[in-house]
Amino acid sequence: MADALIIGEITDGAPASATLEGIAAARRMGAGQVAVLLPGADAASAASAAIAGGADIVYTIVDGPAADGEFDALVDAAQAAVTLSGARYVIGAKTLTGRDVMPRLAFRLGTALASDCSVVSLDDSGRLIATRPVYGGNAEASVACLGSVAVASLRPKSVDALEPDTSRIGEVSPLAFEANVRTRVLERVEEAGEGVRLENARVVVSGGRGLGGPEPFDSLRELANMLGGAVGASRAACDAGWVPSGYQVGLTGKTVTPDLYIAVGISGASQHMAGCSNSRTLVAINKDAGANIFKEARFGVAGDWQKVLPAFMEQLHELMG
């Protein structure tokens, strides 16, 4: 039995960072006993890392369609884990998988999902209070979950994981459930670019509609290379076909939290900022001094990037030797 259940994921043989963040969120809100569902071939070894990360019970699934990441089976597994754990609070993450699995799980449990939360807490009567950006980030809502089970998903990187404690003891048990798969994956094509992954980059240089075409992204790549970073983009630049959709930063794109985010020719719509506003230092270059991005940036230059950027890069070359 547990009070909270984290719908977890495994990446590279270990609990995903979003999963460790979910465990930490449950512990910090004082939920009590925390169980984690870990589907994946490496679940047995990942389980110890989950326990070190704050879990008391780990339900593992090491083979079959759920372990392979089939969404239908994951919903079935999650539902079985809720029943088995008796958890009142179910927490997942707004990851590729969580985006599909968490809402479906919530409706199966007779409630709805508090999605994309930045904060979860408990009120005096033990209700889960979920705080989340809405209207593309232009407003922030807090809701109290009313059902007998509360289901929430966290926006990745909005909570810090706990410091791992390898002396912690927990229970690991395989989960038995029946999977009913209807939507099948026929083919998957990876298009990951070369170089630093956007999500992990310490420096991100992003371009928007103001760049005017695909060629200027070469300058952004050059700048990113100089700084050991990656290139991102606004949705407008992706929709125009200047860069692949994998470059998109924002509400419906990637969430990045680099030390330095440089936005070039991006107006700073809330839906874009949703993916980058937790960057440590945000720098904006935009020819419109009234652009919203200057309300969010730490440093700004109101000017034409065609003039600003080459001079910036030249000066940078000099500084960096």
Partner: peptide, 27 residues
């Protein structure tokens, strides 16, 4: 499923420093 507890505009705490120069390149 939910009761709305509060809805507000998010607070932004950024102090923006605009960098200016003789011209765009200088900035």
């Amino acid at each position: 499923a939910f009761e709305l507890v509060s809805l507000k505009k998010p607070e932004r705490a950024v102090q923006t420093e605009m960098i200016t120069g003789d011209d765009d390149a200088d900035a």
